[in-house]
Design a binder for these strands. Structure first.
Lengths: 338, 338
DNA sequence: CTGAAAGCGCTTACAG
DNA sequence: CTGAAAGCGCTTACAG
């Protein structure tokens, strides 16, 4: 049998209350008893039962992190561990634990949500990657349960969220292409289900507009299926008979695929077509040419999300907060002719 | 205030015991009362408090997953989400939840372990990637707490573990190189802290031996630092003045880096030097040439780990189990001349 | 500074 | 088939 607080109390010849206070470092306890109790705890290798404590406290110090199925977020994969590390690091600092669930469909997601939120396990929830019409966002809002979304949700005013400045970075990236003299710049891999990519697209459009250039819808290639790869999307673009001189891909992997197709056509990057990606995967620095991309700072997205969540958990009155983690342009050889 | 089981009992004019039984689908409850209770629960949107249930049950249905800091396992990153998905999927099936902790140093790891295991939160623990002299393995063994290691641990007889057949796959991969006529095959990126890479090395050596070839230690390049990349390791190899015709890299990313260095020397893959990787990252299929690699089936590693853990949790007597998830050779253009 | 008592929200032998 | 009671292992007003 596990040793309990009561066992300690008996051995120390004090009341359970006293042991409890000693553990909690309650200053009212005399140092004599504190030490006596401490010694016995150490001797018996006693560790308080966190579950019992949670029940008494009505505080579990657990937050839930819900990760949508891989199927839906193939593109999220590479930076997900970093986001988690960000959450984890701050959670650890504030003595919170993380309950995780990678759900594979909407039904599972709903079920998990219920368990975490209504089951009294988690004190708050972090949702990775909100989609258009995300049912979880709706559900949690209805429950008025503390939660934070990573990736700006649709209904952005009544939700806590953290995201990159996607509009701005889309704008800047486009501007970079324009400054290199490009006029026919393709936007490869729009997923209209994800608000982040819509934001980037708007930045793209605004940059063209500011330059007095029209938006050619044929240059915007949607990525409908998760297994779309850059190669195929690039081929689609070519089949439309319009020859871009620049390609902004929504993801580094898409960019690599696009580069492969371009090379197969006997064209060169960046001389014939400049290419950029997104997410700054490790390999982006090592491709040939090295890939211009965007560092989205996933670790910060995670840690900021935890910060907001903590605020939401601890605040009595309701308020909706957001945090913007700046994304940074990483310019490399794939968009710059030496 | 949250609605509790007692609230339901009062409204339904039955005892709390009855409500509890109704929830648990205890067959002794008449369908009449069961329905009455169910209706009220639904009306009040009641959800049992999992924490209270855990305390009464002495069963949390939570397992812990401990992920060593990114610093120590850069190479693990790409497949970690897949492992987690494997664990998660089976956990979900058996109604277990997953508490996660990505620890960044040994101290944090120890602390987390204590909390999970001795704090009575988790019923079992999955440890990712055991290192040589892993302190967590030792600690959990001492506590005789149920746990499973992903990646064969040192002390393999007194521990539950799941791993690939690393020796065999190292052997087969080497054999593949030999069959292509290679005789000077480098082993790039040995991390002697990780038993998996040692196993692969042994497979490599055995294959050479079976062929009657000597092992040239100069062909074995150790990767001491986490930020070692394939490019630099390959350069090291060249600097040793020995020219391999084949390179087995311990990871796809290392392989890409190696290929880059090779290309810069004006040499071609696979004609001058054949290259292989490990882990079968998405990009391996799309590099030029496509990369020969090893599919380690991370999803299966995760789900098998959960299976073993469940067995360990539920068995009264002690036994040590292991599961081998077959890795598969994926032969592509980087090792085959058309 | 310390203790007795009640309570957190469930479950489960025991009795009927 | 149902209920009263005890218990899971803690915490925390309240009283002294």
């Amino acid at each position: 049998m596990r040793v309990t607080l009561n066992d300690i109390a008996k051995l120390a010849k004090v009341s359970p209350s006293t042991v409890s206070r000693a553990i909690a470092n309650n200053p009212k306890i005399s140092s004599a008893t504190r030490e006596k109790v401490s010694k016995i705890m150490k001797d018996l290798n006693y560790h308080p039962n966190i579950i019992a404590r949670s029940l008494a406290n009505k505080s579990t110090r657990i937050i839930g992190v819900i990760i949508p199925g891989v199927a839906e977020t193939a593109f999220q994969n590479p930076f997900f561990p970093e986001v988690l590390r960000g959450v984890s690091s701050l959670a650890h600092k504030f003595k919170y634990n993380i309950l995780i669930s990678s759900v594979s469909n909407a039904d599972e997601e709903k079920q998990t949500l219920k368990q975490f939120a209504q089951g009294g396990i988690a004190e708050g929830i972090i949702l990775l990657a909100s989609r258009v019409g995300d049912p979880s966002v709706e559900e949690l809002t209805k429950l008025s349960f503390p939660f934070v979304v990573i990736g700006k949700p649709e209904n952005k005013h009544e939700v806590n969220w953290v995201d990159n400045n996607n509009f701005t970075i889309g704008y800047e990236l486009t501007k970079h292409f324009l400054e290199q003299g490009h006029r026919k710049i393709a936007f490869l891999g729009l997923s209209s289900n994800y608000i982040v990519t819509l934001d980037r697209l708007n930045g793209y459009k605004k940059a063209l507009e500011d330059k007095g250039l029209p938006v050619d819808e044929r240059l915007i290639i949607e990525s409908k299926f998760i297994d779309d790869n850059g190669y195929d999307l690039m081929k689609q673009l070519f089949n439309r008979g319009i020859n871009p001189t620049g390609v902004m891909a929504g993801d580094d992997l898409l960019a690599f695929g696009a580069m492969r197709f371009i090379n197969e056509q006997g064209l060169k990057v960046p001389e014939d077509i400049a290419v950029s990606g997104f997410n700054n995967v490790q390999l982006a620095n090592y491709s040939s040419p090295p890939l211009t991309t965007v560092e989205i700072n996933p670790y910060l997205l995670g840690s900021k999300a935890f910060e907001l969540l903590l605020a939401a958990i601890n605040s009595d009155y309701k308020s909706y907060n957001r945090a913007i983690v700046p994304a940074e342009l990483v310019i490399r050889g794939s968009t710059q002719i030496k």
